[in-house]
Amino acid sequence: MKTLTAQMSSDGRTWRLYVVLFGESGWPTVRWERPGPVPTVAERRRALAELGYEVASGAGWSWSEDSRDPDDDSTPVLLIAAVEVREREGGAA
């Protein structure tokens, strides 16, 4: 079964989880309107199910850091998480 990438990121005010669909103008997205805490794995699993996806067998979340200005290490860090997902059988919950 084809896998896709789901990512979760925060701008310091909200968390967004989205499934990357290259070539599409709108990506399936869930938002948590809170700066913290980081959405739990269970919250992420439920959000993916709402969008019609599930974590691919054997996949795990990985985290990376980014910055709005990579040349200035004093700017706030942006956290980005990623995991491989697949469409759930039967689609969205």
Results as ranks from 00 to 15, higher is better:
G23C: 02
R86V: 15
G91E: 06
R88F: 04
A93T: 15
E65V: 01
P70I: 12
E89Y: 04
E54I: 06
R44L: 07
D66G: 15
T75Q: 08
A56T: 03
G90K: 12
D73V: 09
R46W: 07
E84L: 08
S67N: 08
R45A: 14
G91H: 08
A6Y: 09
A59I: 01
R88T: 09
W27H: 12
D66M: 05
V85A: 06
L51T: 01
E43I: 07
A59L: 00
V38P: 03
G52P: 05
P35Y: 12
G60A: 09
W32S: 05
E24F: 05
R46F: 10
L4G: 08
E87W: 13
E89Q: 12
R88I: 05
G91V: 14
A92M: 02
V41A: 12
A59W: 04
A47L: 08
M8V: 14
T14C: 10
W63F: 04
L48T: 02
L4R: 12
V30W: 04
A47P: 07
R16W: 11
G60R: 06
D69H: 09
S67W: 00
E65F: 07
R68Y: 03
L17S: 00
R68M: 05
V19Y: 01
E89K: 12
G91D: 07
S62T: 15
R34N: 00
